[in-house]
Every structure is written in C-alpha cells, then in structure tokens.
Simulated scan of single mutants.
Amino acid sequence: MPARISRKGNGYDHALMESWHSLLKKELIDLTTCRTREEAERAIFASIEIFSNRQRIHGGLDYQTPTEADAAYHARHG
C-alpha cells in the first residue's frame, strides 16, 4: 500500500492524482483503442507530454501551460 500523507481513509491526499486520472480516462482511454501495450504507452505519453504539458492551460498555473509556467519561473529566478 502506498504511503499516505494524512490519516487512513482521508481522500484528500490523493485528490489531485484522482482528478488527473479521471481526465486522462475521459479524454484518452475511453476514446482510444490500442492494439498493443506499446501503442497504449505511446498514446499516454503523447497525451501527457504533448497535450497536457504543452497545449492545455491550467487554472492553477494562472491559465498557462505547464511548459509556459516553467519557462516564466526560470526567467524570473535564473
């Protein structure tokens, strides 16, 4: 069993990952048929690295993509 941040049964410690998994399932898994494990791995990698990190804006990042937010952080902090 994975380590827990808070006491047993408190669902808040996994809420962010559960939300992300839900989005991945709705946007990729439910809409894609992969014939092999390798196809599935490539599709998931592309969904995360290309779409989510480089194209999807995130409200928690001031409506920037993670790539844009990372570049802005490094521009400010060297």
Rank of each mutant, 00 (worst) to 15 (best):
M1C: 15
M1L: 09
M1R: 12
I5T: 07
S6F: 12
K8L: 10
H14K: 12
H14V: 10
A15D: 01
L16F: 14
L16V: 11
L16R: 13
M17G: 07
M17H: 14
M17A: 15
E18W: 08
E18I: 03
W20L: 15
W20A: 15
L24G: 05
K25S: 08
E27L: 02
E27I: 08
E27C: 07
L28Y: 05
I29K: 03
T33Q: 08
C34A: 09
T36I: 06
R37S: 14
E38L: 06
E38M: 09
E38T: 15
E39L: 04
A40V: 01
A40E: 00
E41L: 13
R42E: 10
A43H: 04
A43C: 05
I44A: 07
I44L: 06
F45E: 05
A46D: 12
A46F: 13
S47R: 11
E49H: 08
E49K: 00
S52V: 07
S52N: 13
N53Y: 03
N53L: 02
R54S: 10
Q55S: 08
R56H: 11
R56F: 04
R56D: 04
R56G: 06
I57K: 14
I57P: 14
H58L: 05
G59D: 11
G59Y: 13
D62V: 14
D62W: 01
D62I: 00
P66F: 00
P66C: 04
E68P: 15
E68L: 15
E68V: 13
A69Q: 05
D70S: 04
D70M: 11
A71M: 08
A71H: 02
A72W: 01
Y73D: 03
Y73E: 01
Y73A: 04
Y73M: 04
A75W: 05
R76E: 11
R76W: 10
G78N: 12
G78I: 08
